[in-house]
Design a protein around this nucleic acid. Structure first.
Lengths: 215, 215
DNA sequence: TCTTTATGTGAACATTGTACACATAAAGAT
DNA sequence: ATCTTTATGTGTACAATGTTCACATAAAGA
């Protein structure tokens, strides 16, 4: 017991191990509770037990750190969708399976927005300059981001003949906008007062109408 | 020239006249350019040419000021929708008119989001505590807020028999979610790269599908 | 004319992000 | 093994922000 065991906090806990990941984790935890505005550089470093400037060795500035948190939040959303997809029972008819697939994506999206509003808002938060975050590259476990997961679901609908190819693009926008919009309205807008049960019903109805709109 | 003319800035421009409105105006201008995060109390007072603390005579704190700006931004959205409604040509068939009405509301909403992203984001910005801003009470020129304007449009659809009454609520959520979601995706999401012309087409298609989803 | 009230000013403080110089641990070179 | 270099965390310092308290001054009422 003398070579390179990590000290506690005697004189200097130098070489934190993986400070970058620790900072990201703390940032995520803050975003989870308070949304993007809660990700303060000083608070993050405080939680990790390190001096504020230590963060600058791993992130260019607060903006950069927040960007990393955003990516992680987006990954969490992708994982939630994938987990919903994994719950799908086996369905024989490929067209029905494709439909169920799309619903699962939508449901995973909506559930995540309600279960983790802080992360959801962080994932889609607009950077201060009003210009940032184009397409999120960060991906979930399967390597696909939420947009790609939706895209795959629509591919299946086209392949099985449920969705005419000409309408594919419009359908993508409709499905996406509707689900994203409802998510925001659950979190922020006047639908916040609804009980979880009511939200469940509203979500189902929305997905029904999206499906109807595709045909 | 001696009674009560407003001084310039000699020794004290006391009695600003209507400082509260001036602060709100400056806050709105900042929100217009930089979104909700740009509404800094000190910057607002600086623009008005007054000391930071003067704001506290009219607003409890920064949060309160931002809330006022939010309301004003929501009013601006309502006005944009109303202006779109005003452009509607006279249509004989009441059912067609009702449909055109809904489209106008959607178009006004989408246009505003693209023309004034800063105000749009401010109107729907989530307060820091993640809990605030339930239903926006603030209204446009006609005294109706955006939600009520949509509601009126749906009323017309129900009255003319286009929309079955049982589906009214679901339709409201779909229409609203779709339009709101597309707005967000234009501003923030991956649809930001689209040209104005492309956005116009996408908007039209979305409204088509919403209409289809209602039936 | 005196008093009260409303409204703006001034100085001060805690907190935030960030830049600079410095310290120390690990890795490489000789 | 010793020296040098690099990576990583510390300390001090500064500007900017929101906010509080005491004070100043203009307007309104008695």
């Amino acid at each position: 017991m003398s070579t390179t065991q990590p000290h506690k906090k005697t004189s200097g806990a130098y070489r934190h191990g993986d400070l970058k990941k620790a900072l990201l984790g703390a940032g995520l935890a803050l975003a989870r509770q308070g949304g993007p505005n809660a990700v303060l550089l000083r608070e993050v470093t405080r939680q990790v037990g390190v001096v504020p400037n230590a963060a600058y060795r791993h992130y260019a500035n607060q903006h950069d750190l927040l960007q990393a948190v955003r990516s992680a939040a987006m990954s969490a959303l992708a994982n939630a969708i994938e987990s919903e997809l994994a719950k799908l029972p086996s369905i024989n008819d490929p067209a029905d399976f494709a439909r169920a697939n799309l619903r699962a994506v939508g449901m995973g999206y909506l559930k995540f927005a309600q279960d983790e509003p802080g992360l959801f808002l962080t994932a889609f938060s607009v950077p201060d300059d009003l210009q940032g975050t184009a397409v999120p590259e960060k991906a979930g476990n399967s390597g696909l981001n939420p947009y790609q997961l939706l895209s795959v679901a629509l591919d299946r609908l086209v392949d099985t003949g449920v969705l005419p190819n000409e309408r594919r693009m419009g359908a993508e926008y409709l499905a996406w906008s509707a689900v994203h919009g409802l998510s925001m309205l659950f979190i922020d807008g006047p639908l916040r007062q609804l009980s979880p049960a009511q939200r469940q019903i509203v979500s189902q109805r929305l997905l029904d109408m999206v499906e109807k709109g595709l045909v």
